[in-house]
Amino acid sequence: MAETSPAHLITLPDVALKNILDQCDFLAITNLRKVCRDLRNFIEDTKPEPYHKDLNIILYDDYIRVQTYTGENPWLYPDGDWVWTQYTKEPIGCSVSFVTGDKVIQKGFPNEDYISMFCGDFLVNFGHRKSVLPDFYLNLTCQNPEIQSKFLESFQKILESRIHPMKVSTFQMVVEKAEPVLKILKFMDKNSIEEINLMSLHRATRELDLTELKNLKQWNAAKKLRLEHFQTSENLEEFYGFKSALVDYKELKAQDIVRLRNEFLQNPRPHRFQLMYETISNEPLLIDTFGQPFLRTDPIGNKKNWIFSIPDTDQIVSINLYSKFVIFYRIKGSDVKEKTDPDYFEQVWV
C-alpha cells in the first residue's frame, strides 16, 4: 500500500481500479479511455469486459452501422442502453457518428477508410473479449460484392487473429447465400454457440446450400436452428441433432412428418420443430398412420392436431398441422393438461 492517501482515481490500487472498470458500462469505458494516458494504458492492459446484450452490425453500401445493447432498456443512450455508432464513407476518408437520443456527435477522419475504421474499433472493443456475447447479429445488406468481400476479409482477419475464438450464444446473419456465413461462423467458439439463425436478405424464400455449413463444428454444436425465408432440400434427418429447428421445404413429404414423430417418441433431444412448406405430398398417409386428428382452430388458424404419449415418460408430443407449416412440440407431464386443451396454442416463430 502506498504511504499517501489516493489523490484521484488512478492512484487507487490495481485491484480496486479493475473492480471499478468491471462495473462500468461500455460507454463509460469508451470515455474513460479518453480521460488520460494512465487510465487508457490501464484499460488496455486489463481489458475490462463491459456487459453487452446484443451486438448488431449492419453493412450497407456506403456505411456500417453498429448497434449495441449494453443493458435491457431499449431507448437510445443516454436515456436507455441502446448505443448506435455509424461509420460512413465520405468523398475523402470517412466519418464516424455516435447517435444518442438527442444529438449526433460526428467526427471526420480524412485519410481513413470506413471499413478499416470499423474494424479498428471492433478490435479495441471486442477483439479480446473472453466472455460470451449473448447475441451476435451481422446483416450483409450491402449489394456490392466488392464491398462485401472487402468487409468480410477484414472482419475475418480480426476473428482469425484472436487467441481464443469469439464466444457468442446466439449467432445471427442476414445473407443472400451460405458463403459469408461459412467465413464468419467458423471463427466462433463452438462451445458457446446455442442458437444459429440465418435469415434471407430479401425476405423472399430462396434456396440455401447447407452442404458445407452442416460440416462445421459450430453448426453441429448448436442446439437451436432457424432458417428464415430460406428453403432447403436437405433430408429432415440432417436436423435431428438440434433440440429446436425451423426449416422450410418447398415440398414436405408426409413420410418425413411420420419419421419426425417417431424421432420425438424415441429420442429425448427434439423439443420443438417447425417445418414450413408450400405443398405437402401424400397427406393421407398421416391419417393412415396417426389416425383421425382433432380438428381445432386457434388464433393462428385451422389445424389438425395429433397427440402421442412418449413411452416411458410422462411427456407427450403434440403435432399441429396448419395450412403452411407443421409444428411439433414436446410437452412436459406437468403441462399436459393445460397444453392439450382445445383452446391452447403455442406461439409460432414466423
Binding site: L21, D25, V35, L39, P78
Partner: peptide, 21 residues
C-alpha cells in the same frame, strides 16, 4: 464510483475523478 461514470463526457469524468488531462 462506476455509477459516477455513467453518461459523462471525458471532460466531466476528469472533474469527477479528479484526473489530469
Amino acid at each position: 464510483v462506476a455509477n459516477m461514470a455513467q453518461g459523462k463526457t471525458p471532460a466531466q469524468l476528469r472533474r469527477v475523478y479528479l484526473l489530469p488531462s
